[in-house]
Nucleic acid binder design. Structure first.
Length: 369
RNA sequence: GCGAUAGUAGCUCAAUCGGCAGAGCGCCGCACUGUGGAUGCGGUGGUUGAGGGUUCAAGUCCCUUCUAUCGCC
């Protein structure tokens, strides 16, 4: 919980422009940054085993407070020995606070200054999250990194952003006060939409809490790329250099490159696994491939010639397209392996590029998805 | 052999009294950024089994024929 706790130290090993290569220490191992974290919402990275995640090279895995609280229940997870033991992932885990899901998934929700009342998307039952409740759940789950309970507003509606920023700050104070475990790092979340003054104000407040890490929320939610980049540049100037910076919910290969060049250390995104289940393959250097497309029916080549993942080493596009057309569940597994390997590997390679002073060469080869 | 019923998009089916031939699925493609294995969007698609007749107008009514299913000798 405390920045000086050796469990959660962060060291910058090298930098290239504003990009940094660092190491973040957690009770379940060291995270080398920049890093891309696969999302395992319901205590599983969908379609993948922990062994496959390890082979992909994943170090940090996300899970989710909202989903695990509703099912199977955080008390059950605690009873089964905590999230690491439950899902058999012995590496570092980060849990999101549930704030985002309460607004994006719950059938109805009512927010006030104290917390949020919402109805479960599973059975319609009514629940209430407060900062204290979110922390209590996350302590039951037992992740290495836990997130403050925040409110993610529409980025352009200044009035609601002002309210959300204020609320997010009050809630952060309460999260910090509510925490009892010393083996979990609480990250605060900067909000502020597309408004520089609000972003700056939020960054200053979160920084003042002297937390082991800072997250940037409310990006990739509808704003332009230029606005995202401007916000990241502003954050680079406002946030302390000696703490990891986590850009929540981003992104594509190009987003990773652009954010790393602006000082971001940690990423997570559902895109690679969701797109895998929607039949699209992410390519590192050439955009994306919709494998369902008819021309691939007789294509003997791999998804990506330059990819070293198990799927690309082993299977043809024709075979993968067949699995998709036949609705075989293996397609989700094989495409998820490729997409996660692409992003996890990209972050790893860019880290190497920072260490070896050739980041810009690598960055130049990445095109839009 | 006789009788009944049916035949419309790749599939399953709509189409009022005869009045612009449609939907779902499939197929083809697009989107997806702190995951509901979710979701949304766009597109292609027709000699209405075949042939003839009535009518201003036929998927629809009449005749012939083919096919399928069921029933009966």
């Amino acid at each position: 919980m405390h920045p000086n706790d050796p469990q959660f130290t962060f060291q910058v090993q090298a930098s290239a422009g504003r990009a940094r290569a660092g190491v973040f220490h957690t009770p379940h191992g060291v995270i080398e940054t920049p890093v891309f974290a696969p999302v395992g919402t319901a205590a599983t990275v969908k379609a993948l085993t922990p062994a496959q995640l390890e082979e992909i090279g994943a170090s940090l895995v996300l899970s989710n407070t909202y989903h695990l609280y509703l099912r199977p229940g955080d008390d059950l997870v605690a009873e089964m020995g905590g999230l690491h033991a439950f899902m058999q992932w012995e590496g570092p885990i980060l849990t999101d606070s549930g704030g985002f899901q309460v607004f994006s998934l719950a059938d109805t929700n009512h927010v006030d200054d104290d917390g949020v009342t919402f109805r479960s998307h599973i059975d319609g039952s009514t629940h209430r999250f407060t900062p204290e409740k979110s922390i209590a759940i996350q302590e039951n789950l037992g992740a290495d990194i836990i997130m403050a309970f925040d409110q993610c507003p529409e980025p352009y509606d200044r009035e609601s952003v002002v309210k959300a920023v204020e609320r997010t700050h009050r809630w952060l104070e309460r999260c910090l006060k509510a925490g009892t475990r010393k083996d979990q790092a609480l990250f605060g979340i900067v909000q502020g939409g597309v408004h520089p003054d609000l972003r700056e104000q939020s960054a200053a407040f979160v920084t003042s809490m002297d937390l082991p890490g800072v997250a940037i929320g409310g990006l990739a939610v509808g704003e332009t790329k230029a606005e995202m980049h401007a916000t990241l540049e502003l954050m680079d100037r406002c946030l302390p250099e000696d703490r990891p910076r986590y850009l929540m919910g981003v992104g594509t290969p190009l987003d990773l490159v652009n954010a790393i060049r602006r000082g971001i250390d940690i990423f997570d995104c559902v895109l690679p696994t969701r797109m895998a289940r929607n039949n699209s393959a992410l390519l590192r250097n050439g955009g994306r491939l919709n494998l369902k497309n008819a021309p691939f029916a007789r294509d003997p080549g791999p998804i990506d010639d330059s990819c070293g993942c198990y799927t690309c080493r082993t299977f043809s596009r024709a075979y993968l397209r067949h699995l998709i057309a036949a609705r075989e569940m293996l397609s989700a597994t094989l495409l998820s392996i490729h997409n996660l390997y692409t992003l996890v590997g990209l972050a790893r390679d860019l880290r190497q590029g920072i260490l070896e002073g050739r980041l810009e060469d690598l960055a130049a080869g990445i095109s839009a998805t």
